[in-house]
Design a protein around this nucleic acid. Sequence first.
DNA 1: TTGTAGGCGTTATCAG
DNA 2: CTGATAACGCCTACAA
Lengths: 335, 335
Amino acid sequence: MTLSDVAREAGVSLATASRAINGSADRSVRPELVERVTEAAARLQYTPDATAQAMARGRTTTLGLLVHDIADPYFSAIAAAVVRTAEAEGLQVSLATTQNDPAREAQLIDLMRRQRARAVVIAGGRSAGERSDALAESLAALGRQGVGIAAIGQPVPGVASVAVDNRGGAAALAASLLDLGYRRFAVLGGPTDRVTARDRREGFLDALGDRGSVASSVETAFTWEGGHRALLRLAQDGVLADVDAVVATNDVMALGALAAARELGLGVPQDVALAGFGGISTLRDVVPTLTTVTVPMDELGVRAVRLALGDQGDVVESVGCDVVIGGSTPDLRGA
Amino acid sequence: MTLSDVAREAGVSLATASRAINGSADRSVRPELVERVTEAAARLQYTPDATAQAMARGRTTTLGLLVHDIADPYFSAIAAAVVRTAEAEGLQVSLATTQNDPAREAQLIDLMRRQRARAVVIAGGRSAGERSDALAESLAALGRQGVGIAAIGQPVPGVASVAVDNRGGAAALAASLLDLGYRRFAVLGGPTDRVTARDRREGFLDALGDRGSVASSVETAFTWEGGHRALLRLAQDGVLADVDAVVATNDVMALGALAAARELGLGVPQDVALAGFGGISTLRDVVPTLTTVTVPMDELGVRAVRLALGDQGDVVESVGCDVVIGGSTPDLRGA
DNA sequence: TTGTAGGCGTTATCAG
DNA sequence: CTGATAACGCCTACAA
């Protein structure tokens, strides 16, 4: 059923039917006619064709959302916020996953351009390499076409971003751990070229100053498996015994490390203390509770949507993170 | 930039440009021209307008995905599979969340109809009430319009579904627990009218037969908080002491119960044994490991997409679930 | 092999 | 306040 059918059924012109149904800017249809049209529409089970509307109006109601992996609790929490906020603005969310592949990321940006998305939110860190040129270029093309863009987590040059203060959070974590009496650390650093991981690593290291030292900084995948393998390697190399605490640059890595420790028969925190980064909510039932730095994922999602829908000067908002001390890093000073 | 611009730039007709760029059914453009067009398109940074294509072709490349809450690990795991499979088919996923609201669910189905989605996957259980009529009606309207539909988890009458064998899984769980020596149970039953919860509850009860008994079956929200509150109530009512194991009808409820037990100073499994249902992957690091019934979420997603894209006879595929015994329900026979 | 022209379902401009 | 009618950007018979 098309609007023409409705118009005919109601005995009015196409134009009138259109105005009656969506009440456009120049609302001006006699109530009686509105009712007639509405009834006709109901009778015919008419549903406007969003595609055609988009074309006629010249803009869609789609918001593109790019994440690495929607099954990752970090991204699914952000996605929940994005979806909620977008829906409140009358936008549909078109979800795509980059699978950690920079090339794919640029491709997907292009896809959003094709879909004529009204705005795009891109979450998830990237590498600091030349590859990111492709991304920047795609993004620029998008922006030129008038699409609102916002990046989450790691700011993108020329794009409105809501950044996470990874350095500050890591520094605060370092300070807290030092206060608790920890001195020697092993850092599960994530991929060296991943900006987020790097900031957390460096933030931690810098804040340590001469009050603490890092016995080992391992490069790993930014995943559960990465954390898992890294801890096994540390144990194998014998560094673990020489260390007060293991600090992972994200929570799922910390979980992997936790699992690995258990497999090795090492108790956490008795044999090795552990800290993560992220504060993903499903962790609240893990034992021991994980010391971590919480990132306000909901806020990230909400602000990103607002930014993407906003005026687009390349703002960089920054959200802070909070250290949460859990059972995985007990106070050493009493001991 | 529109295709006309490209055509002009390349010095060919609009039709030729169209054929050159998307290589439609009647591929028949001289290679030389194809190249000229391609180059022109590149020079102009032309990107086809998916909206216009959809309209011209009469069909979109959108797959709608409805879940209750994308932050829930169960749904995000399904979503990951759906997105992956859809992308492989060249479809974009339009994500919407129902927030457990049946009215909203029907609304969203309508929204998908508006978007002229090519197919719709609807995940997440519903109530067995009159309310579901609205859903069935919307769904029927969708189907009539030629949209492929598939339901995940709980079959919907008249709709291709991939069902979870909740009854069977629950029965198997009951059998396993009985084998381990458990006899008296408390069941955290979820909402009484929720079909999924009901099937699990009844499946468990039926399989118990006269070998075991249920001391208490509590109605609760299907959430962490629901499980949490329910366990507190059980403790308060004194039933907890009288019971061998607490069986939750889903994993997040079990986690809530686990947390509540800890708050009460009760050890799991020393003071109370616990089982869940679902097998969400983030649980692998919870201590003690939770006895549960795993549901193959990835498979659910993949098959649902195939079903939605397929021939649509109202098939009901069924996937089985497996009991996994964890540390939360130790063997009682040795004791 | 290439071009012409009509149409997809709406909106929006411009007269009545 | 209402009704023709021209876009919107692309696809696709049909014709050349």
